[in-house]
Write a protein that binds this DNA or RNA. Structure first.
Length: 332
DNA sequence: GAACTATGCGGAA
DNA sequence: TCCGCCTAGTTCA
């Protein structure tokens, strides 16, 4: 479950590999057969992300709307051209996750990489498979193209050279332009699309009126789009804010700083492909942060461990039906 | 192989 | 407030 950064990365990937093409659209799983038939063979005109939602525009005023929910993911395979503005992380041999049967690796595939290759930036097209979900992974290309659908593939978009498979989305539907507008209207501003004073003010206005705790307001997609449970917890820590503080009691400058921080974290997330929420990591520490979640966060999933800043025990609390991690020593 | 977990959210109650 | 969706990874036995 990808927070906003993943969805923007995916939209860029579609921009590079599918915009201008006329992909065959199908639903190997069958659950999206009708929608797929509406889009099949049409020219793809645009790929956009707003918060956690992605919109693909097809000719003839047909829009595909996809929301990945908690476990949705796109897999790209074939001659995947990586957008030069983003990086893709491979896996370092010896890392614990490498030994398992990677879900991207079809039968007979190997992950065979240099030790130095934990971060790869790829400009030229080449046969590869790239999973774009909460954590991107690259693995060896399968022998045949297009690959046999693995698991429950809701939608497959296929050109002569590239294949994109969607699994487990919470929403996948074809909309009219008016319906797309309605969805976007309900969403708050997304700094990855427009980090402007006006958009920041829109966030401050909406958030500043809420009596609800700031810890809930940051997750409210109609207030600000794209923040999920990880960024929520980390942003509150970085702002040294108690999650229970009613949003309308916060100084305007505090809300502005939250917006600015979100814009910064989101940009890092889009570029790097990981939610790096600790600033100033360099060298080996940064490399570790790319592969070890505990090394890149202050509080998320770190309950019971000492705060990296003050040493107090990180708390886990059920909050709005989600898990909230925070430091009682730092956040007041 | 079972059980549990997840970066989300809509709808029923 | 709780349930269900729906998939895959991880942990435990």
């Amino acid at each position: 479950m990808p927070e906003g950064h993943s969805v923007h990365r995916i939209a860029r990937q579609f921009g590079v590999n599918f915009v201008g093409e006329h992909p065959a659209v199908s639903s190997p799983q069958g659950r999206f057969a009708q929608g797929a038939a509406l889009l099949d063979g049409r020219n793809v005109l645009d790929a956009r992300a707003v918060g956690k939602q992605m919109f693909l525009e097809f000719e003839g005023d047909q829009w595909l709307r996809v929301h990945l929910g908690i476990y949705g993911a796109w897999d790209f395979s074939g001659e995947v051209r990586i957008d030069s503005s983003i990086q893709i992380h491979g896996q370092t041999p010896g890392h614990s996750r490498l030994g398992q049967n990677g879900e991207n690796s079809g039968p007979g595939n190997h992950v065979d990489r240099d030790a130095e290759d934990s971060v790869t930036s790829i400009g030229a097209p080449r046969r590869t498979r790239v999973r774009m979900a909460e954590t991107d992974k690259e693995s060896a290309a399968s022998e045949s193209f297009p690959p046999e659908p693995v698991g429950q593939v809701r939608v497959r978009l296929l050109t002569d050279t590239v294949c994109a498979d969607l699994r487990g989305p919470t929403a996948c539907e074809v909309l009219t332009p008016a319906e797309v507008d309605a969805v976007v209207q309900r969403l708050g501003p997304d700094p990855a699309n427009a980090n402007t004073p006006a958009e920041r003010a829109r966030f401050v206005e909406r958030a500043g009126k809420k009596k609800t705790p700031i810890g809930l307001v940051l997750m409210d997609q109609s207030v600000v789009a794209g923040i999920g449970n990880v960024y929520r917890a980390e942003m509150l820590f970085r702002a040294e804010l108690n999650p229970h503080t009613p949003a309308n009691t916060l100084d305007r400058t505090v809300l502005e700083a939250l917006w600015d921080d979100w814009a910064e974290l989101l940009e890092i997330g889009i570029t790097v492909g990981q939610m790096i929420t600790i600033d100033g990591l360099e060298g080996e520490a940064y490399q570790r942060a790319l592969v070890e979640r505990d090394e890149r966060h202050w509080v998320y999933k770190l309950e019971g461990t000492p705060c990296k800043r003050c040493g107090a025990n990180i708390i886990l609390e059920e909050f709005g039906a989600r898990k909230l991690y925070w430091c009682p020593g730092c956040q007041h």
